[in-house]
Lab assay of single mutants.
Amino acid sequence: KSAVKALFDYKAQREDELTFTKSAIIQNVEKQDGGWWRGDYGGKKQLWFPSNYVEEMI
């Protein structure tokens, strides 16, 4: 599983989504079709976030 870095702040709209700030590192990313991926951040595990808010880390 990979890690991504947030390009923008994102505030969860639902309880199954992540809230994060710009430059946050989201771990254990599971990529899905449809523009939403799952990952771990801030003590939350495998919640959804919009993939267009992040960049992949190499």
Rank of each mutant, 00 (worst) to 15 (best):
K1F: 12
K1L: 13
K1I: 13
K1W: 12
S2P: 14
S2L: 15
S2Q: 13
S2G: 12
S2H: 14
S2T: 15
A3G: 08
A3K: 12
A3T: 15
A3E: 14
A3C: 15
A3W: 13
V4G: 05
V4K: 03
K5E: 06
K5D: 03
K5W: 08
K5G: 04
A6N: 02
A6S: 06
A6W: 00
A6E: 04
A6Y: 03
L7R: 08
L7E: 04
L7P: 01
L7C: 11
L7H: 05
L7M: 11
F8A: 12
F8R: 15
F8T: 09
F8Q: 12
D9K: 04
D9F: 05
D9H: 07
D9E: 09
Y10M: 00
Y10R: 03
Y10D: 01
Y10S: 02
Y10K: 01
Y10T: 04
Y10A: 01
K11W: 12
K11M: 13
K11H: 13
A12Y: 00
A12R: 02
A12H: 06
A12S: 08
A12C: 05
A12I: 02
Q13A: 11
Q13I: 10
R14L: 07
R14D: 08
R14S: 13
R14C: 15
R14W: 08
E15S: 12
E15I: 12
E15R: 09
E15F: 10
E15M: 09
E15Y: 10
E15W: 13
E15D: 14
E15G: 09
D16R: 03
D16C: 15
D16M: 07
D16G: 10
D16N: 11
D16V: 08
D16Q: 08
D16A: 07
E17R: 03
E17A: 01
E17W: 00
E17K: 00
E17H: 11
E17L: 00
E17M: 05
E17Q: 12
L18M: 07
L18W: 00
L18R: 00
L18C: 05
L18V: 02
T19C: 08
T19V: 03
T19F: 03
T19A: 07
T19L: 03
T19N: 09
T19S: 15
T19Q: 07
F20N: 03
F20L: 05
F20K: 00
F20Y: 02
T21C: 15
T21A: 11
T21F: 13
T21I: 12
K22I: 09
K22A: 14
K22T: 10
K22V: 11
S23N: 15
S23L: 11
S23W: 13
A24D: 10
A24E: 07
A24G: 08
A24H: 04
A24M: 04
I25E: 06
I25C: 08
I25N: 01
I25Q: 04
I25W: 07
I25K: 03
I25H: 05
I25T: 06
I26Y: 01
I26E: 01
I26D: 01
Q27C: 15
Q27E: 14
Q27S: 13
Q27H: 15
Q27N: 14
N28W: 04
N28I: 03
N28M: 06
N28D: 05
V29E: 02
V29Y: 03
V29C: 06
V29Q: 02
V29N: 02
V29L: 01
V29P: 00
V29W: 00
V29I: 07
E30Q: 14
E30I: 15
E30A: 12
E30C: 15
E30T: 15
K31A: 05
K31Q: 09
K31V: 08
K31C: 07
K31D: 02
K31H: 05
K31Y: 06
Q32I: 15
Q32G: 12
Q32A: 14
Q32W: 14
Q32R: 14
Q32K: 12
Q32D: 08
Q32E: 11
D33T: 11
D33A: 13
D33S: 13
D33H: 11
D33G: 10
D33L: 11
G34I: 06
G34F: 07
G34A: 07
G34V: 06
G34L: 06
G35P: 11
G35S: 09
W36K: 04
W36R: 09
W36P: 01
W36M: 09
W37G: 02
W37K: 02
W37Y: 04
R38T: 07
R38D: 01
R38A: 05
R38Y: 04
R38S: 05
R38K: 14
G39E: 02
G39C: 04
G39H: 00
G39T: 00
D40V: 00
D40T: 00
D40C: 04
D40Y: 00
D40K: 00
D40S: 02
D40W: 02
D40L: 00
D40Q: 01
Y41N: 02
Y41F: 10
Y41C: 07
Y41D: 02
Y41A: 05
G42V: 03
G42A: 11
G42H: 07
G43C: 10
K44I: 06
K44L: 13
K44E: 09
K44T: 06
K44Y: 12
K44R: 10
K45E: 12
K45N: 09
Q46A: 10
Q46V: 02
Q46W: 05
Q46N: 11
L47N: 08
L47K: 12
L47R: 07
W48K: 10
W48V: 04
F49K: 00
F49C: 04
F49S: 00
P50V: 01
P50A: 04
S51Y: 06
S51V: 09
S51A: 14
S51D: 04
S51W: 07
N52G: 11
N52Y: 10
N52T: 11
N52F: 10
Y53A: 11
Y53I: 12
V54M: 02
V54S: 03
V54P: 00
V54I: 05
V54H: 01
E55C: 12
E55K: 09
E55T: 14
E56K: 05
E56P: 11
E56N: 08
E56T: 08
E56Y: 06
E56C: 13
M57S: 09
M57D: 11
M57R: 07
M57T: 10
M57V: 14
I58C: 14
I58A: 14
I58F: 14
I58V: 14
I58N: 14
